[in-house]
Amino acid sequence: MHIGIDLGTTNSLIVVFRDGKPEPIPNALGAVLTPSVVAIKDGSLIVGDTAREVSQAQPAMAAALFKRVMGTERRYKLGREEFGAPLRAMRFWAARTLQRRWPAISPRNRGRM
């Protein structure tokens, strides 16, 4: 099984290749595109549509358009916390999305397929 992750500047997407064809994996809300936005809400790091809503209501609690600065020293302050370019949050989103759809792809099982 091959998996592709497109971490886009505006939206992100995960696909699994089956029989040579890409099959998009929907997120927890059923959409195949997830906004590339991270935010802090109620003390938790969130991504996607919910994070985009937070960014509109509380811009100081969210970050978007961070793809261009990944791998640099750029830091983001979200509320009282400071983070490097939020790649870790988007990786977490990708892993959680894959695990929900295919539990066999969990990090513990990665090399066993």
Rank of each mutant, 00 (worst) to 15 (best):
T34Y: 02
T34E: 04
T34K: 00
S36M: 01
S36C: 13
V38A: 15
A39W: 04
I40G: 02
I40Y: 06
I40K: 05
I40E: 14
K41Y: 08
D42G: 15
D42I: 05
S44W: 00
S44C: 08
L45C: 09
L45D: 00
L45G: 02
I46D: 07
G48T: 09
G48V: 05
G48L: 10
G48N: 02
D49C: 00
D49H: 10
T50G: 07
A51R: 04
E53R: 09
E53P: 02
S55V: 06
S55A: 14
S55C: 11
S55D: 11
Q56H: 04
P59I: 06
P59N: 05
A60P: 00
M61F: 05
M61K: 00
M61T: 00
A63N: 07
A63L: 05
A64S: 14
L65F: 04
L65M: 08
R68N: 12
R68K: 12
M70R: 03
T72Y: 01
K77G: 06
K77A: 10
L78E: 04
L78D: 07
L78I: 03
G79H: 01
R80A: 10
R80W: 02
R80Y: 11
E82R: 03
F83C: 06
A85C: 12
R88P: 07
A89F: 13
R91L: 15
A94N: 07
A94F: 04
R96C: 08
R96F: 04
R101H: 14
W102G: 01
W102M: 13
W102A: 15
A104Y: 05
I105F: 10
I105L: 15
S106L: 02
R108K: 13
R108N: 09
R110V: 11
